[in-house]
Amino acid sequence: MAFLIVAPHRLNGYFVNLIYITLVYVGLAYGWNIISGYAGYFSFGQITFFGLGAYATGFAINAFHVYWMLAALAGGILACAFAFPLGYVMLRLRGPFFAMGMFGMAQTVRVLITALPATGAGAGLFLPPGSDVTSVYYWTLAVALGAIALTIWIDRSAFGLRLQALREDEQVAGTLAVDVTRDKIAAFALSALIPGLLGGGFIYFLNYIEPDAAFSSRFDLQSIVMAILGGVGTVWGPLIGGVLMTQISEALWAKFPQFYLMLFGGLLVALLILLPHGIVPALKRRYE
C-alpha cells in the first residue's frame, strides 16, 4: 500500500505507467465483476461507460475549463446516471442476449460518437496539452481502491446476498421478496460508475481519446479474462487476476503485438477449460 502511494515519486516513468495500467484494468475488472460476477448478468459491453466517462470528461474540460478531476467525477456520475435508464431496458434481456446486447450498445455508442462532429468524430477529442501524470495516478489508485472497498461491502451486505440470489434464480428470488428489478439496476449502475470514473482519468492521461480506443471491445475482453482468472463473483479475484494478467498482457504486447488479440482470446478459452473457477476459489478449496 505504502509502495503504491510513494511509487510515482520513487519509480521511473515506465514502472509508474505499468502500475497505472494495472490499476485501470483492476478497476475495470472490479466494475465488471459487480454486474456479471455477483448479479450474473455477463456483459460484453461495460466499456460503454468507460468511453462515456472519457468523452464527458473531455467535453467538460474543453467547454467549461474545469479542473480535470471535477470533470472526471462528473463523467463518472454521468455514466452511472445513464446506466439507470439503460439498465431498465437492457436488463430485460438475459444470458447471451444481454451479453451481446451490451456489446452492441458499446458499438452503437462508438458509431454515434464517430458520426458526431462535436466529439471530434473519428479523429478523436483533444485536450489542452500538458497533463499531470501523478494526479491521474492517484485518481486511478483511489478509484481502484474504492472499487475494492465497494466489492467488500457488497460481499458482506444484504444487497450482495440479494444479487447472488437473483444470479442463481431470478424468479425464485422474486418470490422470496427480492425486488429483482431494483437490485439489478442498482448493481448495473455501480458497475457503470467505476469504468466511468476511470475513463475520465484515461483521457486526461493520454490528453486525447478516439472512439475506437474509448469503446474498444478489447478492454471488455481483458477485464473478463482478468475476472475469470482470479475468480468471478469473488472479492479478491479481480485484483489477483488483474495484476497477473496486466503483466502478461504488457509482455505479450511488447513481444508479439501482431499476435496479441489472438493470444489473449486463446488465453480466455484455455482458462475456461483449465481453471474455470479461477484462482481464488481454487485456493479456497485447497485450504478448506
Binding site: 455477463f42 444470458g95 478489447r218 475482453l221 473478463i224 479474462v225 501482431q258 482470446g265 478459452v269 475456461l272
Partner: peptide, 25 residues
C-alpha cells in the same frame, strides 16, 4: 460449471478474438 450457458458463451467470445486476431496476423 454451474452456468454452462455463460461459460460456453464466454468461450466462443474468446474464440472469436482468437480467430479475428489470427486472421489479422
Amino acid at each position: 460449471t454451474a452456468s454452462t450457458e455463460a461459460s460456453s458463451l464466454t468461450l466462443t467470445f474468446g474464440l472469436s478474438f482468437f480467430l479475428a486476431g489470427g486472421g489479422l496476423a
